[in-house]
Design a protein around this nucleic acid. Structure first.
Lengths: 263, 263
DNA sequence: TAGATTGTTAATCGATTAACAATC
DNA sequence: TAGATTGTTAATCGATTAACAATC
């Protein structure tokens, strides 16, 4: 392990390149990003590790350790500049390039995702929506017209898709997944309730509603007697429990993320 | 730590009661459940830890360690009885009681969830769908009629709701969450892209599409050069990568989980 | 300078893996 | 009995926490 005096905000090669960040850290960085955006929206321009940690629901120890893996972006005795840190985190997370997302499957879920505006504000462009059902192909949903999944490769090429979201039934998932991979997409988010196989070099993440409910069931059953509070999500860290009401995110001004209002 | 010769399949109080299972274990149990169901559907009635582990994407060491936390449900030299293990896992996860789920918010996402049949097959009954929009209240969606969220407490009581799914915009989330908690619900799954505060004794889990995409972005950016494969989900374990094609889940007969076909 | 807060180290804690004795 | 496979231990690995020296 190379020890070296970190000069200024240089990425300090420690882990940054060599091995990549631990998954737990990557998950937390997304939380910090959200918290920082919230501070930015409130015109706060400097935060201490204590304040940011509290807003993110982690210990300040963990926060500082996480940030120090990326480089030295704070100032001792002062704190972190919100905008500056935001920039550095975005770069570290790879959010500065263009991400063009295709949603494969225009069933209920696919349509809900397509209409959801939250991706764009986070820097992800939904560029295509595909399905195999003739009744659905050609329909306009959100800002998109549904393409024929038969032309998946052509659509991906035309739209320069580099991320895919699978909103498919389990039965079709592996087949379509293989095709998406063959088309050159290396980042896939699956909502299909089945275990998918992807070759090395392809990153697959999975979201499963039923799994989430099962985990809730476990805690509820246990919590029956004593009080228990669970949490984690998406491999992401937490900010649950009693948490001090004073740092409460301020009504979330800028449209944050997911589900649209009741239409 | 109390050491004791575990007699047969007795829950061996070790951790089962005292402290609860580690979160990582709980997440993996849901994966084992799915794999076991798949075996059951194929009329396989016995599995070795090796086979089940492979189907679940974990090491057999991890699998056996996990299962042994619940009790001794296998037979040395033989393996595990699929149906028997399934029962024990279901009990451990609290899936034997009635779970009645209300979906709060009937926007695109809420409607998609309501129409999705996958919950029922996993033992979760969707009993209510609520919204505040007069244009939506009263509409029939899936098997449900949309209730007025103004009567949330009454609806919850009538339907004996004990789990809530929040499919709301960030701006309304905390307010509604508080009301849901006040109504006595202690298990909440939120799709709102904001950090929610809940009192102790309430379990909150969060699913956030944008977070998932950001994590994908991180890996994609890194994977550029060398091959990298990410994975985890919902705090859940994995089964990714090259994985041997021979144990591939058999086309998933019984409807597994989430998104419905393209309508 | 005095006060504040970072970046980093060392200690603790928890989770995973490998190996094997127990036992069907 | 011989072969197989669990349940469990000990070793490794990684992540979190606490504490503090460095430094603005």
């Amino acid at each position: 392990m190379v020890r070296r005096a970190s000069h200024e905000g240089e990425p300090s090669v420690s882990l940054s390149e060599g091995k990549g960040l631990p998954p737990a850290v990557v998950a937390r960085l997304t939380v910090y990003l959200r918290a920082l955006n919230s501070f930015l929206a409130d015109d706060v321009d400097r935060v201490s590790s204590d304040a940011l940690a509290e807003a993110s629901g982690v210990s300040s120890s963990t926060l500082r350790k996480d940030l120090s893996q990326l480089g030295s972006y704070g100032t001792r005795g002062v704190g972190y500049e919100v905008e500056n840190l935001l920039t550095h985190l975005s770069v570290a997370m790879g959010l500065t390039r263009d991400w063009r997302v295709a949603i494969v499957g225009a069933g209920n879920l696919g349509r809900a995702l397509a209409r959801y505006g939250g991706f764009e504000t986070r820097g992800f462009d939904v560029v295509a929506l595909l399905d195999t059902d003739p009744q659905i192909i050609g329909n306009e949903i959100g800002w998109l017209r549904v393409s024929d999944a038969a032309n998946l490769e052509a659509v991906f090429e035309r739209t320069r898709t580099n991320m895919a979201v699978l909103a498919l039934p389990a039965s079709a998932a592996q087949f379509v997944c293989d095709r998406v991979v063959a088309a050159g997409v290396r980042s896939i988010l699956s909502f299909a309730p089945t275990i998918l196989q992807v070759p090395p070099g392809v990153t697959l993440r999975k979201v499963d509603m039923a799994t989430e409910l099962q985990i809730l069931a476990y805690h509820a059953q246990r919590g029956e007697s004593g009080g228990e509070t669970g949490q984690p999500s998406a491999g992401a860290p937490e900010a649950v429990d009693v948490a001090p009401a004073d740092i409460q995110p301020p009504a979330d001004t800028r449209p944050a993320d997911m589900p649209p209002p009741a239409d």
